[in-house]
Structures are given as structure tokens and as C-alpha cells.
Simulated assay, not measured.
Amino acid sequence: MNDDPMLQIRHVQLRIHADDWQDALRRAANPLLDDASIESQYVSEMIQAVQDLGPYIVLAPGFALGHARPSEAVHRPCLAIATLDEPVEFGSEQNDPVDIVIVVASTSNDAHLALLQKVVTFLNEENGFDMLREARTNDDAQAIVSTVNKGE
């Protein structure tokens, strides 16, 4: 089995609706719950981290990187990407409202760093934000998966 976590097409959701930031994290994580990559406890840990530390996961205008510490509630390192049909407020003065949520779930610090590297590379080098915001179709989702996993 490949140790390098890959983004799966089933973990990409385009233009979904979320009522608020907690709902955005829950909905973005749903595909990971559906295939038992994570347990609901991990979603609770992500939400609790924001409640404890503030909206530190809102890293750029319109972008939140949902994550918590490596956890036993994570069964395999994984990523999920969701774009929102309507942006939601996370409480970040500089970067609200958020319309892109990426969830990173990992079993170890090394896996966490590998996932973060994939996300950062995608967002920095491939016009990733535009690609995500413009995505509407399954072909668009597949292009995102291919770009995130490039070279794999």
C-alpha cells in the first residue's frame, strides 16, 4: 500500500450548501465519514480546535483548512475538498467569508505534513484557488484530483 495519501474523487464536493462554519466543516468531512476514513469524533475535534483557538484555520481569503491533531479517530491519512455555494463566516477579520474548505485528517505528524504539502503545492503552483472556485462538473472535480495528486 502506498504511504503517500492521495485525494480521491469521492472526497471532492462542489458548490455544496453550509449554514455556518461548523456545518461547513461537517459537510466537507462527510465523504471521509462515509467511507470510514475518519470517525465523527475527528469532526468534533476540528470544531473544538476552532472554538478554543479562534479561526486560525482560515489561512487565505475565502479558504479554510480544517484539521485537528493526528487522532485515533482517523483511520487513514486523507483529504477532502468542498467548495460552497454561498460563503460562510468563520470569524476571520482578514479572510472571511470562506467558500473553500479543505479537510486534512492524519494518523501521524509525518502524514499530516505530507497532506499539507500536497495542499500547499496545489494552491500555490496551479492556480488552485481559481480552479476550485470555477469547478462545477465531475470533469472539473477529476481535474482537481489529478492536479493535487500530480506525479502519482
Score class of each variant (00 low, 15 high):
129 F>C: 00
20 D>Y: 09
117 Q>H: 13
139 D>V: 05
64 A>K: 08
47 I>W: 07
130 D>Q: 15
89 E>V: 15
62 G>V: 10
4 D>L: 15
34 D>V: 07
96 D>Y: 02
95 N>D: 09
130 D>M: 08
91 G>E: 08
114 A>E: 15
57 I>H: 07
21 W>T: 03
60 A>Q: 04
13 Q>A: 06
55 P>K: 07
129 F>Y: 14
145 V>R: 05
140 D>V: 05
103 V>I: 14
142 Q>G: 03
138 N>I: 05
98 V>Y: 00
89 E>S: 12
89 E>R: 04
34 D>E: 15
150 K>R: 15
133 R>W: 05
9 I>F: 05
17 H>P: 02
67 H>P: 02
54 G>E: 10
12 V>A: 07
95 N>L: 09
24 A>T: 03
97 P>D: 01
33 L>P: 00
40 S>H: 12
64 A>T: 10
68 A>H: 13
75 H>R: 11
118 K>A: 02
136 R>N: 09
29 A>R: 00
21 W>E: 01
5 P>S: 15
112 H>P: 12
3 D>S: 13
77 P>Q: 03
143 A>Q: 14
141 A>W: 11
20 D>E: 09
87 P>I: 08
69 R>V: 02
89 E>G: 03
142 Q>S: 11
42 Y>G: 00
31 P>Y: 11
88 V>G: 02
137 T>C: 05
137 T>D: 00
78 C>Y: 07
31 P>E: 14
97 P>E: 03
102 I>R: 04
108 S>V: 02
110 D>Y: 13
49 A>E: 04
53 L>A: 14
139 D>C: 00
13 Q>C: 04
73 A>E: 06
66 G>I: 05
87 P>K: 05
50 V>L: 03
11 H>R: 14
130 D>A: 13
103 V>H: 08
65 L>Q: 06
78 C>W: 09
98 V>T: 01
50 V>C: 02
26 R>S: 06
59 L>Q: 13
57 I>R: 08
28 A>F: 01
119 V>G: 12
103 V>D: 07
61 P>Q: 11
27 R>T: 12
78 C>G: 09
111 A>L: 11
143 A>V: 09
4 D>P: 05
61 P>R: 12
101 V>M: 14
69 R>E: 03
146 S>T: 15
91 G>C: 06
110 D>G: 08
35 D>P: 04
141 A>D: 09
1 M>T: 14
73 A>S: 13
47 I>M: 11
35 D>T: 00
45 E>A: 13
97 P>F: 06
5 P>Y: 09
5 P>F: 10
64 A>G: 13
3 D>W: 08
20 D>S: 12
107 T>D: 05
22 Q>E: 13
114 A>S: 15
143 A>P: 03
40 S>N: 13
54 G>I: 08
20 D>P: 01
2 N>S: 14
56 Y>V: 14
140 D>R: 09
